[in-house]
């Protein structure tokens, strides 16, 4: 069996204030898979995301990306992990901190050592993949929310990550931006982990889903199966929109 794109084993994490956020989380994602991580607010989703690229370190357990273990003590391997796990955070205003779109997309590859023509090429490619090349010289403040989220995706695509992690990608998007983003994500040839409580979006994009509740993975199955299990959903405060039916 080849290395998993992402392997989390018995991960537990307790916040400094004593709040237990993750409790024995294990999951495995194969290369090329698109997986949704479902869970209500406060289930530990965002905390888990912060472990995937070494922002937080679990009190016990381990996280490996493409066979490389995340180790906060080893600065070298941390750099490699951060370039291979592309995290798109919830608020694009946090992610887009540079004065223009182009500079923002260049930030990651620059830190990874890209310069000059190579850097320009990487930036162009990433922006074209999300259809934002035309707006490259705009300041982020001049973009719509949907456009900002697309640029946020480009900022990590430019680092050629092995796995793309999106935290609530559909939040605050109007229906058109939502669909555009889905089209873009579907078109990417990349392993994808999408953290969300937007169940229809998960169904649309991901074949497989995990449910995180109370710091545990409580279900791991095909998205369709999970969304049909109304008991499971209501137990964990997950709800389909009114009138939405899964056949």
């Amino acid at each position: 069996m080849s290395e998993a794109a992402l392997l989390v084993e018995s991960l537990a994490y307790e916040y400094p204030d004593g709040n237990l956020a993750l409790h024995d989380v294990s999951l495995r994602i194969e290369r090329g898979e698109r997986v949704a991580l479902l869970g209500p607010n406060g289930s530990g989703k965002t905390t888990l995301v912060k472990h995937l690229n070494g922002i937080l370190a679990g009190n016990s357990g381990s996280v490996s990306v493409d066979g490389v273990r995340v180790d906060l003590q080893n600065k070298d391997s941390l750099r490699r992990i951060r370039s291979s796990v592309g995290v798109v955070f919830q608020d694009p205003d946090d992610q887009l901190f540079m004065p223009t779109v182009r500079e923002d997309v260049a930030f990651g590859p620059f830190n990874m050592g890209a310069r000059g023509e190579e850097l320009d090429l990487v930036v162009k490619d990433a922006l074209e993949r999300v259809g934002m090349w035309e707006l490259r010289d705009r300041p982020p403040h001049h973009l719509s929310f949907g456009q900002r989220r697309r640029v946020a995706v480009a900022t990590v695509l430019s680092m050629s990550p092995k796995i793309l992690v999106l935290d609530e990608p559909s939040s605050n998007l109007d229906p058109a931006s939502r669909r555009e983003l889905a089209d873009i994500l579907r078109g990417l040839d990349i392993t994808l982990l999408m953290v969300t409580h937007d169940l229809p979006y998960a169904l649309e994009l991901c074949e497989r889903s995990l449910v995180l509740a109370g710091g545990h993975v409580v279900a791991d199955s095909r998205t369709r199966e999970i969304l049909r299990d109304t008991d499971l959903l209501s137990r964990h405060r997950l709800e389909l929109p009114l009138g939405f039916r899964v056949d």
Binding site: K50, I55, F89, D94, Q95, E103, F107, N111, M159
Partner: peptide
């Protein structure tokens, strides 16, 4: 955190 996630090491490009 967002900067760190993209390999920030104290300098802007």
């Amino acid at each position: 955190l967002a900067m760190l996630s993209r390999g920030y090491s104290g300098k802007l490009p």
